[in-house]
Design a binder for these strands. Sequence first.
DNA 1: CATTTCTTGTGAAAAAAGTAACAAATGGGC
DNA 2: GCCCATTTGTTACTTTTTTCACAAGAAATG
Lengths: 216, 216
Amino acid sequence: MGRKKNKDIIPHEAIRRLSLYLRALKWLSRKKIKVVSSDEITKYLNTIPAQFRKDLSYFGGFGKRGVGYNVEALIREIEKILGTNMVWDIALIGAGKLGTALLGYAGFMEFNLKIAIAFDNDRSKAGRVFGNIRIEPISRMKKEIREKKIKIALLTVPAQYAQKISEDLVQCGIKAILNFAPVNLHLANDIHVAHVDMASELGSLVYRLKHKSSHK
Amino acid sequence: MGRKKNKDIIPHEAIRRLSLYLRALKWLSRKKIKVVSSDEITKYLNTIPAQFRKDLSYFGGFGKRGVGYNVEALIREIEKILGTNMVWDIALIGAGKLGTALLGYAGFMEFNLKIAIAFDNDRSKAGRVFGNIRIEPISRMKKEIREKKIKIALLTVPAQYAQKISEDLVQCGIKAILNFAPVNLHLANDIHVAHVDMASELGSLVYRLKHKSSHK
DNA sequence: CATTTCTTGTGAAAAAAGTAACAAATGGGC
DNA sequence: GCCCATTTGTTACTTTTTTCACAAGAAATG
């Protein structure tokens, strides 16, 4: 049952890679491939076989020596580890350009995440529907998130509102935030925050470009 | 003059943090703050003073002991290091929901990046204008990127086309790609690729949420 | 059923990154 | 001009993460 060796602590990056492994496995599954070796699967990933095996070994031994990994079984194991073996409702706050783009993004489904509700500050947006989701006025945010017991939020509001709104979110029970605003959020440290920051990602690309070094 | 100690190699993450430092410095600048210490600035960042100083020290000594860092001067230094002290034209490939959202995103400007041209496969989209950028048919992509000597591309096409199109991009001179498609690109290793992957970021958030550990 | 060929899981080694600690500057007050 | 409070830049140390290397398990072959 997702037994992990608790003598070792699990590298943060290993968890992130688990998501990538899951995606690759699902792709193999769609191609009707039943069994895959660490050598084979890492051809489609940006890593090496030893790392794939090591990452999995933090959670248990899922492969068979001399054979490889059963694709379907490993999908189920990783989903169990990540917690994506059940549907998680998520809330989207801020239905601007990026927010509405995310409302139509199918990629969340891949991890069993479903945008269940969306809010925007601009009352004129309230009532409009994007990809089956109706935008609600932000005044109802606290009430609805609490009622629906939503734990995860996508934050796509302008930078200047991000801190305040994230505090409101925490108040009504949100425990994890994927922050798209270009500011660092200061929240209690039992609140999990991940940051998607395109511009700064580009910043480091420009650096590497200018300095002509290999990216590998 | 951007003097770096070449005995030490520069941690990849240090470069990414440089972008974050730059953003914080610009914010201080707008607030008319002239000088800032590593202690003060890291209050707005997700890091500690020692790391801020260490990261900068890879590139030179920009502060003054007993005083701190001159905000304007440090902005210029970091821009020079990153290469964002000049405007870079970038191309956007794929004007779907996410692509068009990015066309209207102001955050690129912050790093002197300007979407100069956009392409889409769907001919019916060609000619439409989003945020001053006209969508061109993808048939003209190679020619125009070559002519305009663009080196950086945002790739927002569906996963199944990403590899093929990225190869085309490399052919016409693109050297750096910010990939939003949920696949790993296999390209010559003098091509710099960064990956923005919201769904997998959420995957690791769900894990952390389920396992209740602190995110710090 | 012994042998050969694979391929995993893992402990140990290596590399990389982050943190701490402190000597060396700096400026202000007196 | 000397002392004191600051704050940097850097070296040394610690922790984390990655990579290597190989023993052990599994199937296939004759």
